[in-house]
């Protein structure tokens, strides 16, 4: 059956970018307001799921040519390296550091190493969710 869903495809081209931006916002807002790596990763994977719904698996693989298992592994490696970096500075495992910096556009900003750990969580959640969904979707 030949279908032509113009409205869904045109809407997806706009809405998926908005979901990606919202996921990045929730990821960076996680330290002081609700959110964080887990919800941000789920939102990013839901944006990819919306792309999968509007288009098909082959097109989405052409848009995002990444292997999600590699993304999961990269997330775990980033988290473990961030957690074990404190050992080399004579602190206990999982100690997190922060300091205040004066960035050119943002002004006084506090940068934490917990953000790097959260980045690992984000990548793991995106990788695991998309691996599950793609494996089920490709099944016959």
């Amino acid at each position: 059956m030949k279908t032509n869903d113009v409205i869904l495809k045109t809407g997806t081209k706009v809405v998926s970018f908005m979901i990606f931006l919202f996921s990045i916002h929730i990821f960076f807002a996680g330290h002081y307001t609700p959110g964080g790596g887990f919800v941000g990763g789920l939102l990013a994977s839901s944006a990819i799921v919306l792309l999968l719904l509007a288009f098909d698996i082959k097109t989405v693989k052409k848009i995002l040519p990444v292997n999600y298992i590699t993304i999961t592994a990269a997330g775990i490696i980033i988290s473990i390296l961030t957690a074990s970096a404190a050992v080399f500075f004579n602190k206990s495992f999982f100690t997190h550091f922060f300091d205040y910096f004066h960035l050119p556009l943002l002004g006084k900003t506090s940068l934490h190493t917990a953000t790097l750990f959260d980045l690992g969580v984000y990548l793991v959640v995106v990788g695991v969710t998309m691996t599950i969904i793609q494996t089920i979707g490709e099944d016959e």
């Binding site: 279908t3 979901i19 839901s46 509007a54 098909d56 698996i57 082959k58 490709e138």
Partner: peptide, 25 residues
């Protein structure tokens, strides 16, 4: 966002019987 995606997935399942298409035709 979640309600929109869920509704789109349900309606695609009702219309075509499968949610994710493998190949474009």
């Amino acid at each position: 966002i979640l309600s929109f995606i869920g509704t789109v997935a349900f309606s695609k399942f009702i219309e075509r019987g499968e949610i994710f298409e493998r190949d474009d035709n």
